[in-house]
Design a protein around this nucleic acid. Sequence first.
DNA 1: AACGACTCCAACCGCAATTTC
DNA 2: TGAAATTGCGGTTGGAGTCGT
Length: 344
Amino acid sequence: MARPPGGARRRGGGSGRRDAAGGCEAVRKGHWTAEEDGVLLEHVRVHGPRDWSFIRSKGLLPRTGKSCRLRWVNKLRPDLKTGCKFSAEEERVVLELQAQFGNKWARIATYLPGRTDNDVKNFWSTRQKRLARLLGTPIRRRQSSRSRSAKAPVASSLKSRPATVVKPSQVPCLDQVPLEGSSTGVHPCSAGAATPFMDAHSISAALAPYDWAGSGLASSDGALPLASDIHACSSSNAAALPPLLPFDQPPCTELGFPGLPAGWNMAPGFDNVGTMDHLAYQELLPVTQPAPMMLPFFGTEYLHGGAKAELPDAGPDYFFDDLPPDMFDSLDQPPRPLSPPATS
DNA sequence: AACGACTCCAACCGCAATTTC
DNA sequence: TGAAATTGCGGTTGGAGTCGT
């Protein structure tokens, strides 16, 4: 979904606004142009992904350092997987990790090669809206960051769950998992391919002289201490791959996913995130869940693998009818068993 | 064809954490 | 050591595309 360059200015933005820091240079906002991307890439090529304020202070771009960093992180990084939807596996990873970590999008993104925290955040937000619509319940917004206490916990209520750290030695590499539309294990979306103005080759070429391996790019991208656990993973997404997730492990055991939480209400107001987690799992179960587990909605056991669900006759068909038509595509072709992680 | 609801996602903001001076 | 600058993160907004009626 490429958008035309130089799109609408947002939120009172526009070229006339002056720098909050008191500078005389107008700060440009809104969508980036190819020229701006080029300048930014050149900066990264020379200096690496840092010193963002340098760009504006030297008059290279009328953009704030924050804006430059964001553009790089979300769109120009060469290892990005842009322009394609989350795969079923990626969805499951997000669900699992959101239940584990709460709304720690940056952390979750480190488990999804080629995805940014913004991607994950957007994905989750869209998903929440969809689920809320399905259930006819409004999403209760958190307090805005402006009004919430500075000391208030940011993460969801699930933050209190123990963060079980995955052992990388047990897990396959994400980009080794064959994905839809590919028989080779290579994701159909090549890295950075959907950047509107510069294709992946251009970006890679522009960045080539920079020493990515020694650049600390991983940490610059919000890699967390977990990144130290990363195992070697041969990939076209060269630079720095995040720690990986056990796709072959049922999330219920890892997370202690119960059948029905105490106080479960069939018409929840999304008061606790756990409620959403259960709903979320329900939605994805037919796609990826390999282990039998109890469905709170139906009180019956669902066994994945044969793509056969034993639902009560009176089951709420409307629930499935309203889901995206491609949601259960993978039922036609059950996920192939994962090969063990490469030992190198 | 027109309209509205919905989805996607780029990019903004404020705040906190970290780094630099 | 503390202030300032920079970086990182999570929440939010709104434009544009898609889809259904």
